[in-house]
Design a protein around this nucleic acid. Structure first.
Length: 447
DNA sequence: TCTACTACCACTTTTGAAACGT
DNA sequence: AACGTTTCAAAAGTGGTAGTAG
């Protein structure tokens, strides 16, 4: 659906086949991965540690690129921490709004991106589905994997028509948690994250640390300390280089990727439980349907509604390339979340909920649509869970009634109504006028 | 009772403005 | 006056933990 790069940028060569990406500090990532990486998510947003840091090569030095990250579910399961390992606790929750973090240097010249490793230090994760700060929204107790996108484009609005080069690294898979579950992970974080220095057992000790250490030694009631007190395995990671805090440090160590991420040495101690390979489930046949992404208003761009096809490539055994551990393939990312402020001034269409009613699995909604003067009434509207059949049709500024007989989760979860580019293209609109009105507008309600 | 989550705590690091020196 | 360095307070980020909701 998207125009080829040659269309978007005529005359520019684009040797995407030469593009390569390398995960920096992969040894540190693997140290976490071997235990079962956990990332704390909070309502206000929490940084990742280790944070994503990659280097790219093979870009056209004088061409502009966007570098982006999003998080995709590894599988369709919800997990729980039980008996010192992760085990499946049921089916995954419906995915929250899928956002993409755009590196603040975007768009930048290829020479800029290749000059030094690209840090995503300031990327934050949240479990707040109503987050307005542009943080990436995740579900706790679910597993995710970062995806890195390199897009040759001059501006945000030509991104959609450009070809995406997407990379993933199996060792960056993590479980989102609100509180650390595995004490080994906690200790590893404390050992390597400078902000957690106050919790280290070595070096200078503050009042807080001494008091806590005393408590750690005297109490076994603390739920999380049981195993680590007995087995300080984390010490085997002492030699792992700490992730430098300066995202632009010049002497940053570049560690080559290994072909495969090894399992924890002790099978029984594997944090993933059973025989599940944390690096493989992403590519399993039972992959999630990634079409249920949507757009936070205001000010983001939506992407093509054919993501199923694009993400479907992730199911292919593309990781067999002996030269690289990352997967490179073209795809369209999920929706943009962090957008330069100047982009927010564009008029945005919006949907507002008038009333809703649920009868069994049928949901009828009354909405009004504003800020969408160029949208032709009659354009099909889709529910995020069902892009096959339209719920109803765009009614311009008039209220409309949309019924969803195929809604999978008719309770508790936010519901989103969207106008897809597919529907827009079906209506014959030219993409040049799309930025004003093709946004994924949304509203939420609870039945 | 259990699990997941939130708010708050004490701590460290980062940041940026003011003060100071050359 | 201009520039560079140092100082310091505020902001931001960290894991721990008590309390709460379901």
């Amino acid at each position: 659906m998207s125009a080829s790069p040659s269309v978007a940028h005529p005359g520019e060569s684009y040797q995407q086949g030469n593009m390569r990406m390398k995960l920096e500090y992969s040894e540190l990532w693997k140290s976490f991965h071997d235990i079962g990486t956990e990332m704390v998510i909070t309502k206000s947003g929490r940084r990742m540690f280790p944070y994503c840091n990659v280097s790219v090569s093979g870009l056209v030095p004088y061409a502009k690129y966007f570098i982006m990250v999003d998080m995709v579910p590894v599988d369709n399961s919800r997990y729980k921490w039980n008996n010192e390992q992760w085990e499946v606790a049921g089916k995954a929750e419906p995915q929250p709004p899928c956002r993409t973090y755009i590196h603040p240097d975007s768009p930048g010249l290829g020479s800029h991106w290749m000059k030094q490793p690209i840090s995503f230090l300031k990327l934050k994760l949240t479990n707040n589905p109503l987050d307005q700060k542009g943080h990436i929204i995740l579900h706790s107790m679910h597993r995710y994997q970062p995806r890195f996108h390199v897009v040759q484009a001059d501006d945000l609005y030509s991104v959609r028509w450009s070809v995406f080069q997407t990379f993933t690294f199996s060792e960056t898979t993590f479980t989102a948690v609100t509180v650390y579950q595995n004490t080994k992970i906690t200790k590893l974080k404390i050992d390597h994250n400078p902000f957690a220095k106050g919790f280290r057992e070595e070096g200078t000790h503050g009042k807080r640390h001494r008091a806590q250490k005393s408590q750690l030694c005297s109490e076994n009631s603390a739920k999380k300390l049981k195993s680590s007190e007995k087995e300080p395995e984390f010490r085997c990671f002492q030699d792992v280089p700490r992730l430098p805090y300066d995202p632009h440090r010049e002497d940053s160590e570049t560690l080559m990727l290994s072909k495969e991420v090894p399992m924890a040495q002790d099978e029984q101690m594997s944090p993933w439980g059973g025989e599940q390979d944390p690096g493989q489930s992403l590519h399993s046949e039972g992959a999630m349907d990634y079409t249920n992404s949507e757009q936070l208003v205001p000010g983001q761009i939506n992407y093509q509604s054919h993501r199923t096809q694009d993400f479907g490539r992730m199911s292919s055994p593309s990781c067999t390339d002996s030269q690289t551990d990352c997967q490179g393939f073209e795809s369209q990312p999920t929706d943009m979340a962090t957008v330069p402020d100047q982009e927010l001034s564009r008029p945005q269409p919006s949907l507002s909920l008038g009333s809703s009613q649920r009868k069994g699995l049928d949901i009828s909604m009354t909405t009004s649509v504003e800020g969408c003067s160029k949208a032709r009434p009659g354009l099909p509207l889709y529910n995020q869970y069902n892009m096959e059949q339209p719920l109803g049709h765009w009614s311009g500024t008039l209220a409309g009634q949309y019924s969803s007989p195929t809604y999978p989760q008719p309770h508790q979860h936010p519901h989103h109504l969207m106008m897809s580019e597919h529907s827009i293209h079906s209506a014959g609109y030219h993409h040049s006028s799309m930025p004003e009105w093709s946004q994924y507008s949304l509203f939420s309600y609870s039945c």
